[in-house]
Write a protein that binds this DNA or RNA. Structure first.
Ligand SMILES: [Zn+2]
Ligand SMILES: [Zn+2]
Ligand SMILES: [Zn+2]
Ligand SMILES: [Zn+2]
Lengths: 144, 144
DNA sequence: GTAAGGTCTCTAGTAGCTATAGCTTCAAGA
DNA sequence: TCTTGAAGCTATAGCTACTAGAGACCTTAC
């Protein structure tokens, strides 16, 4: 049995985060010791490691919740899991596209700056007016 | 003079967002009409357009605050503005690197799924254990 | 005059944690 | 056995950048 601190160390997750996951019912309430401290077994560690890895891959907690309940039913078809993963891939691709456009504009404005006064600064100038931009970085709809 | 609604339409910013910017002192308090409604002039529109464009390019509000106070002093050197822009570029590059790693892993796990049961699903399997991953998507430290 | 729609303030909610305060419990050394 | 320091407990507030509502007030057009 692991205390919350050991569990956190084992899974690479901070202690307050574990308590937060319990609060939002992503982790089940664990046993308690005689002194009211949380005690975890292997299954909690597995579950937490799953959550951590999915978070590292950018899945939102709601998606992780769905993935976890799927993985509790091993005989079901995995189609739903694949849909979630594909959705996540789509979101990641959209963000990359958006960020690439931002990167291009930032590089352009930085390159064009002549290191003079603010009045002549290309960075300030471009920020003041999107028509100085080469790309339409506003279009890709993903939240940045 | 523009009411808040017209200003929002002119700058492409929602009305509650304008009030929020005023609250955090990113926009100055405007004049009021006899009936206590906000009235804006051209300078407010310029300022708001600047904020909107900088937000679209991913700058955080704190950086925008600094950029705005710089642009109020046109005779100063623009070095500080360039530092902010470069910092933003660095952040964007880091995020792109992170997201490219995520994208690669997501594509890998999706491609390897055989569309069977959850027990055999490669998506679930990879999420359970980072050692199935090809890349070290955890390393790049930028907040995703 | 009246009706619609814009505006006012204030509060609370979103995601995913993180930090603090003030307390109790546990484990190890003297 | 006693003590001390680390680790645990609950509860609350804060972070970014907004967004959504409630209930009241103002403005404009017909
Ligand atoms: Zn410059
Ligand atoms: Zn632009
Ligand atoms: Zn599958
Ligand atoms: Zn991995």
């Amino acid at each position: 049995m692991l205390t919350i601190g050991k569990l956190g160390k084992a899974a690479g997750v901070k202690v307050p985060t574990i308590r937060y996951y319990e609060q939002i019912e992503l982790l089940p309430e664990p046993e308690r010791s005689a002194g009211n401290q949380r005690l975890y077994g292997q299954s909690a560690l597995d579950r937490l490691a799953f959550i951590r890895h999915a978070r590292e891959l950018g899945f939102p907690l709601d998606a992780i919740r769905d993935l976890l309940s799927l993985s509790d039913e091993p005989d079901q078809s995995c189609a739903a899991a694949d849909v979630i993963a594909k959705k996540q891939l789509t979101a990641v691709k959209a963000r990359i596209a958006r960020l690439m456009a931002l990167k291009a504009e930032l590089e352009r404005m930085i390159a064009q700056c002549a290191q003079g006064t603010v009045a002549d600064c290309r960075v300030i100038e471009v920020l003041s007016d999107h028509s100085h931009c080469a790309q339409d970085h506003r279009t890709s709809g993903a939240a940045e």
